[in-house]
Design a binder for these strands. Sequence first.
DNA 1: TAGATTGTTAATCGATTAACAATC
DNA 2: TAGATTGTTAATCGATTAACAATC
Lengths: 241, 241
Amino acid sequence: MATGRNHRPATRSRGIPEATVARLPLYLRALTALSERSVPTVSSEELAAAAGVNSAKLRKDFSYLGSYGTRGVGYDVEYLVYQISRELGLTQDWPVVIVGIGNLGAALANYGGFASRGFRVAALIDADPAMAGKPVAGIPVQHTDELEKIISANGVSIGVISTPAGAAQQVCERLIAAGVTSILNFAPTVLSVPDGVDVRKVDLSIELQILAFHEQRKAGEEAETTNRRGPEGDMSAVMPA
Amino acid sequence: MATGRNHRPATRSRGIPEATVARLPLYLRALTALSERSVPTVSSEELAAAAGVNSAKLRKDFSYLGSYGTRGVGYDVEYLVYQISRELGLTQDWPVVIVGIGNLGAALANYGGFASRGFRVAALIDADPAMAGKPVAGIPVQHTDELEKIISANGVSIGVISTPAGAAQQVCERLIAAGVTSILNFAPTVLSVPDGVDVRKVDLSIELQILAFHEQRKAGEEAETTNRRGPEGDMSAVMPA
DNA sequence: TAGATTGTTAATCGATTAACAATC
DNA sequence: TAGATTGTTAATCGATTAACAATC
């Protein structure tokens, strides 16, 4: 269950930093909006503002992709849309399966932005036999028993897990055994996967907790100013023995 | 719309690194699971494994909070649960509103982990008059007209936006004007906010695109090995003029 | 040519990690 | 005391940023 991510001497790993990769979708979205408005070119300053980053960072990011701009002019919008799309692998179609069709799974299935850009919902899978056959977002839900068959029949390499936390690891393992190598996990649990499999997680609870931390600090600073009591609580009950 | 984040000489900014803050919820979750199993103490090695990080990182993270462990022994689970909860601001109650009760908003409202830990859904808000009064997750949806009233009546400082992209910025501005200072954004758009307001975003489409990038690279490496054609496409149609 | 803007350099900053002295 | 494990140091790595030479 661990063979090392760099299983090859990095043949042609163009080495785009992970932080840059994570911003490319942001640039792409801004560029797509410009494209729809038929804007022919855009400067790094303008595009950076639209994407919510600073322009030095954007230019640095683009420098990893190549020299796609023109000094004194800016970037050709259409050309850059294409280059980033290609870099992200969006010029091909990615069939994905969603496992766990509860409230969240249904919301994901209905999410429009899904299909819009390279991704196609190949199947919806749920463990509840009562769900089988029912259409969600126009796609009939299939039973978990069919999981392996569905993955291989559709050549699925990306799986979305929106099951309860307790089921996620097992679903994850079955997806991987069937050939999936990228997983987007919405279940609030840590998935353990072999090397070579990418996992990204989306966790509402974690995001809220991070916000709460900063909220508290804001409130604390205020309290310091106005001379109220600090954020300390009674912790006698939980002091270690 | 920009006054600088460090509006004060950082009175007592205990300076916990942002990367550490983002991991605290992970540790807390693992600790809570241990607590439920009545495990009294845990080593950095064990806890790190449960949280999916390495132990050096975990110890470094904890060192920012204080010296809560015992050399040769490990960490007292209950005590650490309390300390991290307090650090994250979870020993108090955070009323949140969810704006935009479509598929996703309803899924969020129904999400159990929400209430479990310091957060309470104070209100559900939607712009569709037909939704008003309808209960979602047992809470009647209120109309957007009531937004300001709801925020101030409930002392809400955290808002969740799950509206369509087009409505998000305006909703964001109204939330902020009404007193919200932390926003969790599910709409696929960049929100611009004044300094002092925290925004975190969750974006399915971006996560999938990042996965696609890595998927493509895996496929590319394979192709290089098996001598198939690379991932280049026909780009003559989009070459700049 | 003059003005604009890229692509790159170099400095800085923040995060990760291994190693180990401190100490239970 | 011997064994275990923390808390911290220091080295390394990766990301950000400002500045500016290159060049359209």
